[in-house]
Design a protein around this nucleic acid. Sequence first.
DNA 1: CCACAAGTAG
DNA 2: CTACTTGTGG
Lengths: 595, 595
Amino acid sequence: MDRQNTDPLFPDYDPFSTGEYSSLSEISDLISLPGSGDIVFDESFGGLPGLSGFSTGSENGSTQQGFGMCHVSASQDSHSPKVNARAGAAGPVANAATEYIKLPPNTLIQFVDGLGQGSVRYLRQVEVQQIPVANQCVTTEQKAQPHLSLAHSTAGPSSAINTACDPYIEPPCSPNTELSAALVVEECMKLDPSSTNLPVMSNFDPQPEPSIANVKKEGLPRSPSIDVMHLNDWPGDFEFSIRPPADLNNTRKWCYNEGTKRLYCQPNVAIEVHVTVNNWQALVASGATVRLCAVFTDPHHRTRPVKRCDLHCQKDTNPNREHLIQVDSSHAVYGYVGERQVVSVPLHAPPPGLDHLTLLVKSTCMTSCLGGPNRRPFAVLFSCMIENFERGRQILSIRSCRNPFRDMEDYKRRISKNHGLLNSSQRADSGDGTDAIANRVSLSVSIPDLESESKSDVQSALESIRDAEKFFNRHRQMLKEFDDKDLSGFRSRHNHNLTGGLNNGPLSRLRSDLTGGHDSDALTLSSDSETETTRIKRLTFVTSSQPNQAVPAAPSGLYCQQVEKKYEAEVVQYVERLAALDRLKNNFPELYESL
Amino acid sequence: MDRQNTDPLFPDYDPFSTGEYSSLSEISDLISLPGSGDIVFDESFGGLPGLSGFSTGSENGSTQQGFGMCHVSASQDSHSPKVNARAGAAGPVANAATEYIKLPPNTLIQFVDGLGQGSVRYLRQVEVQQIPVANQCVTTEQKAQPHLSLAHSTAGPSSAINTACDPYIEPPCSPNTELSAALVVEECMKLDPSSTNLPVMSNFDPQPEPSIANVKKEGLPRSPSIDVMHLNDWPGDFEFSIRPPADLNNTRKWCYNEGTKRLYCQPNVAIEVHVTVNNWQALVASGATVRLCAVFTDPHHRTRPVKRCDLHCQKDTNPNREHLIQVDSSHAVYGYVGERQVVSVPLHAPPPGLDHLTLLVKSTCMTSCLGGPNRRPFAVLFSCMIENFERGRQILSIRSCRNPFRDMEDYKRRISKNHGLLNSSQRADSGDGTDAIANRVSLSVSIPDLESESKSDVQSALESIRDAEKFFNRHRQMLKEFDDKDLSGFRSRHNHNLTGGLNNGPLSRLRSDLTGGHDSDALTLSSDSETETTRIKRLTFVTSSQPNQAVPAAPSGLYCQQVEKKYEAEVVQYVERLAALDRLKNNFPELYESL
DNA sequence: CCACAAGTAG
DNA sequence: CTACTTGTGG
Ligand SMILES: [Zn+2]
Ligand SMILES: [Zn+2]
């Protein structure tokens, strides 16, 4: 995976050029690994194009503010130390099971452990492999040596049950894995992820009796560290839950995808979110609040706080203008937990007849805002807080954009297309589409025999349709360019003829060319239903050098189109596409109508 | 022209809602017009969505920094005062001769004249009409009452000769017009611009003898006020001129459009610009410099300084990081003229054998940078400065973007397309393209008879080609959606059958549908050159209910394609497009090859 | 260099 | 809602 520097402001900076860097073993000497510890990537690292930070869970297993750490495990082989860490790559990251990014050279690595700290500038590029979540985090040489569990309390987000969450959000994983969604840093070497797979320890624990006082507070996450590593719904003892707007949406300002559980909304448009718990009295009496906090769903940016972009922040005049996520309520309290913006709304009993509270939640920036979310998808973490302890959480994935409906549809399309392409993406591609004219021949009706094909029927059908798309795409492009180029060049040369030109001038020649000479050249099209009165004067299709010929009579119900032989391939292909579509319409109307 | 609020951050704010505002006459009472004066729109005005400022020339007739003023002329009728002003509307503005924008209500208007100042909040919406440049600025009721010339010196930019400039740049206009490119504010009333047109006073003056000392400095623009209202080339006494990179460009980082005289370049990529004068000795001896200053080409933003965007400015670490336009030279001096960033490079004699100096000019932001140029095209004003007097100027229109080549081509395309559409845009459009299937019929071969058409031949040909484009576009879109939707729905329902399904299962049914049932249904295609060995097994085109029929023999050189009658229209149209293209290729190869 | 993403305008 | 614009990624 070659990642290029595409930063518009530093086009000449190549963070991944090779040849001048020392080896990883040099690094290991420099930092003289003491066995295990943490590596901190400082701000300068985060400022490098292509990478936005580096972090890992700390010993207490929870979140990390700002730029993170790498947990370092000393390898048995002292010559090839390995680093367990999370790395953040800027920009969208594919959901592939295994993903490699590269660390730019000259990254300043600060090493921290119990004995003190040091720093080292890492000079050589390195690849970072993302190990799928819910797999144990191990290094290559360490033969699947499972880390011992740190024995978290049974309560808390990591012991959640609800696994249905946004696809961007990693499924819940065992708290035993000290570093979930971990990355293995190693020197230019890719691992087969299957070799490092470990069985997932699913420690499902029965919920204790819901109560305020009796809960073991040591086991609950304390407020100053929001656990952003486990973005799974966790109703908790009080069955805290949120209900996104699941109903009538007459405006075009937001929409909700039930399948992906993602809310698409325009910025600064408040969305109703219903909050329910199982014991309003107890919670209200205890001063419980709902705390909202934005978190990047992508694990690579998980540890970075989600902020507003500078531009919109400056334009805003509200006192809470720094806050990306806001709640339209006079009771809303805006604050910070570390660098993370949070807004809290005290719980109060819902009005009689209702079992839920309604929060008017809005995002004040767009997911795409540069300098803010910066195209990184994020979610809002709804936490039920009692005395600064989190007693339940719910995730609402949010995409704040100008065209919510369009984007939701586009997303669905993309997903289904990716699914369709998954198994057939490796086939030999017919024609690379560099030259519309020259390649047209190669597109000629080379539909493989489906009967003897080893590929699945659906795949073959899909490829056929995809070919059709390419085909039309190419023609469209050609015509477009023709249109543009033609007239710009043409008009400049023949501009004097534009009005009142003679019939034998260049323009009339063009006209004649376009109409095929004169109407008597036109092929009469045989058709048994077209009447003379409805027939429109048509352009002819034979070249002017081709004399008109008698048209063979078409069988009833069929239409016979005569064209020059050189057009045969294209016409065949075109008609084939038409027919395939039509057949699908007839035989799978439910599929077709969904278009 | 209804302009809607599309600011993503204030979607609910409607600056143009009506019904709650007082009338313009109320305003007139409040400000009690003293005859004439200036109205100042403050920062809060500029912060409103849809408008970026309001300004006019002051009494000395030159530029205005920051938010500008309206010159107010008391009307004879005291009940309807009129305001002459320039208004700046955010966002791209069409180049139409007459353009209306609206002033949002509650705009704070500060009135300033010799007697003092006052302010008023203007409560009612107002329309502002842009009068084309080089027209006298008059108000409606004032019957074309020409302002007396302020008698500028004959030297200076406004008396320039060179009128060849970027299309975005307004042509030079007479200095007599106190407010060029002026706007007339009036209450919800549009004017016929022709009724206010005044004859343009073209005061072309012979150039005085070139010299340093003898020039009448009072007539030359002094440095603190850069004249941005006349963005035309003005070589001046010393024949100051610049030459953009007119030659070999092997990189893909920039390009130059000779026709529009616009430079397309990536940000932070230095471009060679050659500077020539007719007397190096005199200029160098007098300490002359070349001063570069960015100016928005659009008259609506002309008076606003061009700045870098905050994001890129913050990321930069150079001392000159605030400067959008930079010169790669150790002699470059960065400074400000008012709010405008300028960079000056002292002139020195070119090396022997050369007649020009080379400046390495670069833009550090993109034209599209939000918070900076913000998609507003700008140009670099090259001024030959001697003792803070401008003695010559040249304009270089610049577009700084990521894909210079693509954008240049796109621009050419757009221009030529607009030209092509200019006279035929009012024709009844066939099919609005909302439904691909339903509208396909309406697209059926309705090519008008070119012989009897009153439109020009070229226009007709163009329309035909454009129709073809639409046609292909529609098909492509349909196929694309079909592709996407089809498999997503299909796979979810038939996923269990994807491997090892029986031949009579749903998949085999789909396959059969796609292949037209079985191969024996295929129409054999009559063609006199296709051999059996090269023939590829084809999908069939008739529906399964349609029995196979004998294919009529095609005439030699022709190919006969039989299809169901319902496909007739589409096939006819398709073939027609093919043939039209081909004919153009044969008869106008020079046009075709330029594709 | 192409396709996609996503804001913007009519 | 459609088309266009324009940065981004492969
Ligand atoms: Zn923003
Ligand atoms: Zn910028």
